[in-house]
Amino acid sequence: MNYHKLKVAVIGAGASGLCAARHLLSRPHVFAPPVVYELSNCVGGTWVYTDKVGRDDYGLPIHSSMYRDLRTNLPKEVMSFPDFPFDSQLPSFIHHSDVRSYLEQYADHFEIQPHIKFRTHVELLNPVSGTTGDAWNSWEITSLNLNNHCRNTERFDSVIVCNGHYSEPFIPHIPEIEHFKGQKMHSHEYRCFQTC
């Protein structure tokens, strides 16, 4: 019997993307190894701190909203994946760098790194019509490798989108805000108190 393994793409190598990839890899009889698209050059998603705000070197929005001295507002005991606990020596409320390190260890432990296409920007995700023409049965991803500027289109049976929901600041309309003379800044752009 010829059995088709499902080809799945994962967009994003933050906590959700890594978890999705880990579970796809744990079922090799059902799924082909996943292809994980990651815009940055490392795993961690929003937990990757940078001093930069605005746009990166490629003109793309800075993803992380981390500020320099951030500690988690949840204890690590409830943040961990059930099958991969945090280091017990860490305090309950940990620095953001500890979360990033944890995600790097998770990716290494479950051998996810070889399946990640780093510095790859997903430009387009399109459903592909099935043979009847009235429903789609696969997806096409067009991506751009930011290192060599090569575009690539691949087809997948399924796509898991894990690109985060804290990366784009929401700025509500405030009547008369144009008359405010002080500095206006969204927390997404905050990194440290002005003396740093």
Rank of each mutant, 00 (worst) to 15 (best):
I116Q: 13
M66Q: 14
L60E: 09
S92G: 14
G54N: 03
S129M: 14
N147V: 13
R68Q: 10
H165N: 00
S97F: 13
K184R: 12
Q105F: 13
A13D: 00
I62D: 09
H96F: 02
N2D: 10
V35H: 09
R27H: 02
G130L: 04
G164E: 15
I160F: 08
T72W: 13
P85E: 07
A13W: 05
T153E: 05
Y106R: 12
C192W: 07
G54C: 05
I174A: 07
N152S: 11
G182S: 06
S138W: 05
K76Q: 07
H29T: 13
Q183I: 09
A9S: 11
P91I: 01
K181I: 14
R22V: 03
H29F: 12
F110P: 13
K76N: 01
F156S: 12
F93Q: 01
L18T: 06
A32S: 11
D69Y: 07
R155M: 07
S64M: 06
F81T: 03
P33T: 06
E140I: 02
T50R: 11
A32G: 02
E123T: 03
V99N: 08
R55P: 01
D56F: 15
H23Y: 08
L60P: 03
T50M: 06
S101E: 13
V128K: 15
V78C: 01
I141Q: 07
L90Q: 04
D69V: 06
M79G: 15
L144Y: 01
F193A: 13
P127T: 13
C196I: 12
Y67L: 00
S16F: 10
L24V: 01
C42A: 11
E77N: 01
D98K: 13
E154M: 11
W139H: 09
V30W: 07
K52D: 02
V159D: 10
S143P: 08
L90G: 08
R22L: 01
L70W: 14
Y3E: 06
D98G: 01
A21M: 09
S16T: 10
E176H: 11
I112F: 09
V128W: 01
D57G: 00
P114S: 12
L124K: 10
G182Y: 05
V10G: 11
S65P: 05
P75E: 13
Y49T: 00
F193E: 13
A21R: 06
I141P: 09
H149A: 03
G182I: 00
H188L: 09
A107M: 04
I62A: 06
V161A: 06
S97V: 05
D98W: 10
H186P: 02
V161L: 10
K7T: 09
F193V: 10
G182L: 09
E176L: 01
H188W: 07
T50H: 03
A135G: 00
E178I: 01
D87P: 14
C162N: 08
F84P: 07
S97M: 11
N145R: 10
P175I: 04
G14T: 12
K76E: 03
V78M: 11
S65D: 08
Y67T: 02
D57R: 11
G14P: 05
D108Q: 10
P127V: 10
D51R: 00
Q183G: 00
S167T: 11
V122F: 03
H186Q: 04
S64K: 04
S80Y: 00
N41G: 15
L39P: 02
N137I: 01
S101I: 04
L25C: 10
S167I: 02
Q113L: 04
F81I: 06
T142Y: 15
D157T: 08
V36F: 02
L103C: 12
A32I: 04
